[in-house]
Design a protein around this nucleic acid. Structure first.
Lengths: 138, 138
DNA sequence: TATAAACCCTATAAAAATTATAGACTTAAT
DNA sequence: ATTAAGTCTATAATTTTTATAGGGTTTATA
């Protein structure tokens, strides 16, 4: 399951995607719309900005806005940013690789081999679904 | 990522799958093979037995053994048993459904719709990979 | 039939991760 | 100046995961 962080990030991105005509959107607006803690959401939006998905304007009249095209924001990227690895095991993670302590010989581990396949097929799904697909469904 | 519980379950099933000729296997043997806590693994094997994957024999000379064909043990089932939902959000889970608190109208939520697709495609992958595939890779 | 080996079961403790909050700081419009 | 807004870091609270403990039951076998 996705963490609340990622779930809220998706809601925020969706909200921002739906309000691209207005110049900026307040954290508060998104927080109220979904009944999310303002402060918790703040940290999430900050991460999305640092990762290059959002722009922000400080000071009075400021707020957040989407700076990437919704079609260029795949689920895979959002999940990796907020939640971490998409792979089911550390030993098959492309971006967060770590050996599994209980595994003596990764090269001859059947679990490892199968999980590499699962990872590749899962990645195909998550790279193909973007914010645009979410917006199309609203 | 899978929990250690699920990961250990997969290692245990793999071990049992590789030792089907011997009548029973001791918890201790599996625990030692992978450096897992005996007691932690005990609880996992108990769950696998209750779910109908393993049989056990009590008393001296007892132990565990596989009672299903490896080809009839898909990853999806093992993950659901030990880890819970495969869906990325509670609101799209087939087996553990719960509405999402921050979602006002599930029927018109683009995230929900996309996540249903992700769930269905992910499920296809995990239902198709079985313990047999793991054993083939050892 | 006593003993030891092994699984059974429930409760609880410890650790880690997630979720939430706090508060001081910076920036910019008016 | 004042006020409204994002920035940033630290820490607290909560939940989940991981691990341990310990007595109970069953069974082979000497």
């Amino acid at each position: 399951m996705l963490s609340k962080k990622t779930k809220y990030a998706l809601h925020a991105l969706t909200y921002l995607g739906k309000h691209r005509e207005t110049k900026t959107v307040l954290i508060q607006d998104i927080a109220e719309e979904h009944g999310i803690s303002h402060k918790f959401l703040e940290n999430i939006l900050l991460e999305l900005r640092k990762a290059g998905y959002l722009g922000s304007k400080k000071g009075k009249g400021g707020g957040y806005y989407l700076i990437k095209e919704p079609k260029d924001i795949p689920l895979s990227k959002v999940i990796r940013l907020l939640d971490g690895p998409i792979a089911l095991l550390p030993c098959v993670s492309l971006n967060y690789y770590e050996p599994c302590a209980e595994c003596k010989d990764e090269a001859h581990c059947g679990i490892n081999k199968v999980m590499i396949q699962v990872r590749d097929e899962t990645l195909k799904i998550l790279e193909n679904k973007t914010l645009q697909d979410i917006l199309d469904g609203e």
